[in-house]
Amino acid sequence: MQLLTVSGSPHLHATQPVHKIMWGVVIALIPAMLVSFWYFGLGAIEVTLVAVLACTLTEYLIARFVLKVEPSLRDGSAVITGLLLAFNVPSSIPWWQLVIGAIFAIAVAKMSFGGLGKNPFNPALAGRVFMLISFPVDMTTWPVPVVNRLVLTDAVTGPTSLGIVKEGIKNGESLTQLASQIPSYMDMFVGGIGGSLGEVSALAILIGGIYMLWKRIITWHIPVSYLLTVLAFTGILWLIDPGIYIDPVFHLLAGGLMLGAVFMATDMATSPMTYSGMLVYGVGCGVLTVLIRVWGAYPEGVSFAILIMNAVTPLINKGFKPKRFGEVIAQ
């Protein structure tokens, strides 16, 4: 008789290994990617390709030649980081800046902490913030969608809707004066607003989110608590003074909120491990986002809010334990 395998129980394994989860996220990103290609044309395709290639190559080289371990590109996590990084930059970004951002994301934010699953901060966001600080001008020049899809450079640029509001309020204009410059909510929902690649259509992001929920890649806790917090917080402000504070629906649809809530905040490695912790984390992200958007120096606060909450995650994990069986005796 042949040799039998002897190992500890359990003897069965679930059918969702790491690479299936990661490629599932990639599939969920496809709708938003196609929308960005449609609106920003070749520029968006170039940015996406450069970011994905730079991320995977950096990971490969570091694993191979620095850490001297077998590179695990098959798990797809570097591709996700690349896609998300591309989603977070304007389509007009010079390619070399993007490459530097990608190298930072993978080399500093991910591999130096031990690679897959060990990074305390979302690598794509870390890369984005690094680029924002290093190349503030190029990172905040937003091409207007649907200009000429076949031209790579010299696209017409314009401010994002959040930028319009922030600048306007600062210059003492009232919201009614600004109203004409703000795109309609329908445009913001379906697509076609200025901004980074992944901000262009809330709908496409939502489709990806629903796909991930359906495939059980993410749970509802973080996106729902995040979005509801933003809605509630900005709603209260709007009720207090609709003249200075813009309505909550605008906040929900504008900028990177959808992208952040669905794809960035739900990053497994950097978010809490229990459902209660996830809710706290989502609320924290929401509050910080609104604080930065309304009172901070930048028009958009999603990246910073999520990065700050990433830093709080270990604390949340300590404080919000799962409900232990047998802890409370139900009588």
Binding site: G115, G117, M273, T274, P322, R324, G326
Partner: peptide
Amino acid sequence: VQNCIRCARCVSVCPMGLE
């Protein structure tokens, strides 16, 4: 075996509420 990706699945399935 790969790195733990901190997906929290083990926490949510544990019938005893452990991590």
